[in-house]
Design a protein around this nucleic acid. Structure first.
Lengths: 260, 260
DNA sequence: ATCACATTTTGAACACGTTCAATAACCTCT
DNA sequence: AGAGGTTATTGAACGTGTTCAAAATGTGAT
């Protein structure tokens, strides 16, 4: 009902000690149905999240609905946030797949951007309401299950990579692609933020906004590609790299020291 | 020790029912020291936040340190977030005052931008670590004490207004000032995000980043002011206003309906 | 002084996310 | 079959933010 795919299973369990017994060559068969239970919890939880909202759903509700005890639920998911995180992760996977598929054979920059953004919305349309809880999970450094640090920079990286592939056209110079991809990703985040509170039929309002904003990108890119702009381009890239902000999605705010 | 000013007192109590007895002309003298107690809680709380961190400080700690019971603390502040919010509010006030003061007599655009950004950092330098809790409070819609909706759009509005005043120079056309101010404010937010994890001496790294980024703004503004850019400007402004995103800070993500 | 009233304070309670030691179920190797 | 070890599950507990009815404390008018 939510478009989950089996490939997401290995990302469902986020407990660190899960992969510890790989010392010798012994392969231990998955016991009874550990992954299956995790998946059941996951599905039940998402259903509750969508119905009542994230904050209004308690871990006890989830455990009860999944037919487990509270402690058992915590055995499969390190935290409540981790369940949500798995969902966002899965959405990014879906976005990756759908976007790459529809990008096939499309050459025009504007069209490619349209695909990247449209598929991003398509994938999240059903779980739109749930998206409102994203900021808390994504931006809160203190929460251990939260990204921003390393725990799930993976999601960020992959999400940026989607836009990087979308702009792989001759009209966009190689050297500004990382920067452009990150900029588009940021724009995409802003669009999603708007998407959350857009109650027009199927998010039509957001679609229109995206369409008009994207119309501006190719001309802008063409301008920035002009030789007269070289000074600005170089200075911008230098300023950001000097500050330790890599443009490959490794770290968004780039803490100069602690990141390794 | 934190640069608090008396003018912030009226923003300290965020409970709605506080101002209800203004029916007749009777003026009831402030009882004993309601505001004073609130201020004591506020100061003690900030001290604890700075020392141990926001998440690690409990409301019970705050109440004990202020010599009150837990319930009494909640009488003065609706939530833990509300205390933090009061602090951010106060920082914006300090930014307003300091920036307007130093802006006096400065005409050059680049210099004015420098003042606006530098004072923004100056004001927050002491409480830098505490700033890390901002995203949670600012972006979480579910929390009642949190902005994003109406509760504290005031802070946002005033913060944007600072940058609006900074760009009131002839070289910036009237009609793009709202847009430019909001863009600068967003940039300022990004800078603050970087500031939080910058552990160079006094945030020197952030200073440098700001300086290099600001160098790019005047040329960019000049370019955007060119007649050839009119199409893009108009289209951008139209797209954003069509989407219900006002450029005066009323609502950042612009929920098309519920906002009134 | 006394009454009525608003504010302040208290202490106990609630629901929540999370942790933990103990126990049960199961697999693999001998 | 049994031993050793790993995983799954349980139920109780902890500490947290927040709420609430009741009591205390003051203020203004009678």
């Amino acid at each position: 009902m939510l478009g989950l795919r089996a490939s997401a299973d290995d990302r469902l369990s986020m407990k660190p000690e899960t992969k510890k017994s790989t010392s010798t060559a012994k392969r231990r068969a998955p016991r009874k149905d550990g992954a299956a239970t995790a998946r059941r919890i996951y599905l039940v939880a998402l259903d509750l999240f969508q119905t009542r909202g994230f904050a209004e759903t308690t871990m006890r509700d989830i455990a009860r609905a999944a037919g487990l005890s509270l402690g058992a639920a915590y055995h499969h998911f390190a935290s409540k946030d981790a369940i949500l995180l798995a969902y966002f992760d899965e959405q990014v996977s879906a976005h990756e797949a759908l976007c790459d598929e529809r990008l096939e054979g499309v050459d025009d920059l504007r069209a490619r951007l349209g695909v990247a953004f449209e598929t991003g919305l398509d994938v999240r349309r059903e779980g739109r309401a749930l998206l409102a809880s994203l900021p808390r999970v994504v931006l809160d450094r203190s929460s251990p299950a939260s990204l921003f640090g390393e725990t799930a920079s993976d999601v960020r990286r992959r999400s940026i990579a989607i836009f990087r592939r979308a702009i792989e056209v001759p009209s966009i110079a190689e050297e500004i692609r990382p920067l452009a991809a990150t900029a588009l990703w940021a724009m995409h985040l802003g669009v999603l933020l708007y998407f959350v509170s857009d109650d027009s039929p199927r998010g039509a309002r957001t679609e229109k906004l995206v369409s008009e904003l994207l119309d501006l990108v190719p001309p802008l890119a063409m301008m920035l590609g002009l030789p007269a702009m070289e000074w600005g381009r170089e200075k911008l890239v230098k300023a950001l790299t000097d500050a330790g902000i890599p443009m490959d999605g490794g770290s968004v705010v780039g803490s100069p020291t602690s990141e390794e």
